[in-house]
Design a binder for these strands. Structure first.
Lengths: 199, 199, 199, 199
DNA sequence: TATGAATGAGTCTTCATTCAT
DNA sequence: AATGAATGAAGACTCATTCAT
């Protein structure tokens, strides 16, 4: 039969499909891919196991659709920023803004992060997703920077380093919360430091 | 019946135990926890499946022992550095040294990293291991820094930021290799930047 | 609730019913009963899955109707022969004729044959069909033979043996094609041999 | 893990393996391949479902081993005949002998026959088995015939026709038993007819 | 101690059939 | 009459763990 995955046309069916994605992706992120079974996904989505396989090729497919749907939100919230607001003279503010958006917009738990990250290398689809997004973000920023007069050697590498620092900071704040750390201070340090990168 | 795990005293038995840990941890790191089965572990270790359960409570236990045995080497290679070599006036060199050790000493594959990281949150033991090590490393470095006259506000936060940058850089070099990035330049950027953190 | 199968009276409905039979029987013959699913049948027939169950009791029913409709053509093509053409003095020619018709009229694939044959014994309906047809054919031929002066002991047994030989020969030619066999010669051998049966 | 099928070495294990083959093949022959499930096979064999998959790749593999083990007995009982007993002057006797052996040695039911035959064309392994055996038998007989002075044109085709007739006769006697047929007479007819083939 | 055979619960997936629209 | 979404039982197969030897 080969290609029997149905894209539902009726409104209710579409909603059902979405529910499966949501349930599946959430469960997988919460409990891990291998600790989530299809029965559980179906039950959580409020559907029968059978219908799952009419909308998705297999369990992995559900996860992939979830990644497609929620990945940006979780992993690249900064892509949502209006990058035109970037000005050289208000760089610090913009940075602080980006960081706040990142921190406030994270939707899924710590576990989601790790779980999905762990699949990057065992699976080409996930790897591709991340590779592309990462590059997209870096390049987009480089463009913006150039347009705004941030002109320096090795701009691309600097942007990459910057993004890494922001990532680390935000993960730290969102997920790890070491109680002997002063995260306000850390944020200031990071911002100052990034600024110095482009001077 | 509860606690039947035997700690072997005889040399041969100890060797067997080690072999199981090595085989299990390596396989799990290579192929993932759920893609590695006990039969495979036993076979690779050159023992029978039965014996595995005389030395270990369950499959997870094998992994845990492996983490105990090899974790530092893989995840915290910098702990191996002779921290006494840290001098304020040769800081740049020391940094470069640390980075090189990190990069050269990564023993396991890309997958190992992600795989194990993903287990941090599904299991308290693993989580504890990482939390403690991370803190240990940060604090050790803070001490060293203090002894060497790096005296600044928010030292602990700065060290944390620094470690994050090194981590990112090294992972980037070891694992990702975007072909439009100049990693030598990036290394220089990171080193310069870290230096500026402590000025 | 028992008997809800509707026999359609309207022309369009009848055509739909026929399409389902055709699609179902063809697919089953091509791919096997268990390798053909109702969704596929419906799709091939150009109808919805639901409607299938308004015309047929179950999947098996579709197959049965197909057998009824196409069975003779596939399994007993010789019944189509104008048996009045049977003459004792042109017996050889008639035989050759029968054989040619048999060979040329096989409509379905090799697989169809085997697939359906295998169902003969798992189901009484199919078994009955074959049993009756076989006997019908033998008896019809016996009658013809008698009318044409083929008068010998054990005529029924001889006709049966003859039909068996023709069957073997034709299957051999149609399906097996051993490349070290000369099928023209074999045909001659069979014809001569059959002739000798009735002398 | 790829190749994990274990060939058992211990006597009890070997017996168990055989039991699975016997149970599986018998059930499949009785009820059909798709109507036999692994649980049933295991239960009939008196083992757990798990062990089945340590000895066999899959359900099909069980069937194949059964075919290997019992195929000759069921489909080519004549291969057991001491072919040296073939003499030209006692040909009729030898034929009758072969037929009797064939008829008396059939081990499995009518269903077995059809079921397995139906798999010939849907599966290369089964097809190969039959093709090879058929050719082997034909060629073996041709040799014997030549050694015994049966020297005629198209010997191979004649032997094939002969084997076909014997097959038909025996199946008829064993399985079909039309009650208006005199099988003793039919046997005589076939024997006489075959004899005439080689004159 | 050690082996490797054995267990059986658990998993993904399919598909004939029914149901809401 | 017709659609196609939905159901859920059933089946093949896996694997951590235990047991007989």
């Amino acid at each position: 039969m080969e290609e029997n995955i149905r894209m539902p046309r009726q409104k209710r069916a579409i909603e059902k499909r979405e529910k499966i994605i949501d349930a599946g992706f959430t469960l997988i992120c919460q409990n891990g891919y291998y600790n989530t079974n299809t029965a559980e996904i179906a039950k959580t989505a409020g559907v029968s196991t059978g219908i799952v396989y009419q909308y998705f090729k297999d369990k992995y497919d559900i996860f992939l659709e979830g990644l497609e749907k929620y990945g940006d939100e979780i992993f690249f919230p900064m892509l949502k920023i209006d990058l035109n607001s970037f000005k050289k003279d208000t760089f610090e503010n913009t940075l602080r803004n980006m960081i706040n958006i990142y921190i406030n917009d994270h939707k899924l738990s710590k576990t989601a992060h790790e779980e999905i990250t762990s699949m990057i290398h065992s699976n080409k689809d996930v790897a591709d997703y991340f590779y592309k997004r990462e590059m997209l973000m870096t390049e987009t920023l480089v463009d913006i920077f150039l347009k705004n007069g941030f002109n320096s050697n090795h701009l691309i590498e600097k942007v990459h380093v910057m993004l890494g620092m922001i990532d680390n900071l935000c993960h730290e704040v969102i997920y790890h919360q070491h109680d002997n750390m002063d995260y306000n201070a850390m944020t200031d340090i990071v911002i100052t430091n990034i600024t110095s990168l482009f001077e």
